[in-house]
């Protein structure tokens, strides 16, 4: 495991925990897209089914379980415990427009036509677009709380670090996975606009708000 991969994983973990803590401490999920969080829970569930079939390492197993556990906890906080604070009216992205094409693509373009492989591929494709409901919500309300932008930054950083990890692995291990790379590039591109706003506004102490 190279340093980019490790920091990518840690950044991903930081994102998940930042979001969970933000909701827990403020007792509110205002401004958070429950739909994106459901999509991430689906992503982790379909990708980590191999927990049941193969053991890779203690690190691998524990991280997978933490990701799954935290994503379900987040969904629970949004849709059950702090449901009263959930801003459903602004969370109006139609997720079927993501799930259906992504499911079709996973069936068409995969490494192996088997259930676990198709679900793995589905999770890779779905992850690349799972943040869209959240970005859509921000574009609708025109603003995001600073802590929410830290969450998004860590999510985007995680993806960017994974891209560097794949370049590294290609050079030093001759390893590459086209499905993961293409989806990873798409996912990282989706964050570019946000990265720009984060650097030009949030890091200078301003709240992230979009021009009307």
């Amino acid at each position: 495991m190279n340093i980019f991969r490790l920091f990518g994983d840690l950044s991903h973990l930081a994102a998940i925990i930042i979001l969970l803590l933000k909701i827990w401490k403020s007792r509110s999920c205002a401004g958070i897209s429950g739909k994106s969080q459901i999509l991430f829970a689906i992503v982790f569930t379909t990708r980590y089914l191999d927990l049941l079939t193969s053991f890779i390492s203690l690190y691998n197993t524990s991280m997978k379980m933490i990701y799954i556990g935290c994503s379900y906890a987040t969904v629970y906080l949004i849709y059950a415990k702090f449901r009263a604070t959930y801003d459903g009216n602004h969370d109006s992205f139609r997720v079927e427009f993501l799930i259906v094409p992504v499911g079709g693509l996973a069936v068409l373009i995969n490494h192996d036509f088997s259930l676990l492989e198709i679900l793995w591929t589905f999770s890779i494709y779905l992850e690349s677009v799972a943040i869209l409901p959240q970005l859509f919500m921000i574009s609708k309300t025109g603003e995001a709380e600073t802590i929410t932008t830290h969450y998004l930054f860590c999510q985007g950083l995680y993806r960017a670090l994974y891209l560097i990890n794949w370049i590294w692995r290609f050079y030093f291990e001759g390893f590459f996975d086209m499905i993961a790379i293409v989806a990873g590039v798409v996912q990282t591109i989706l964050y570019c606009d946000f990265f720009y706003l984060y650097v030009t506004k949030v890091l200078k102490g301003k709240k992230l708000s979009l021009p009307a």
Partner: peptide
């Protein structure tokens, strides 16, 4: 093999 390497990632 490729598949095992890939599955090592999160």
């Amino acid at each position: 093999n490729n598949q095992q390497t890939r599955k090592d990632e999160l």
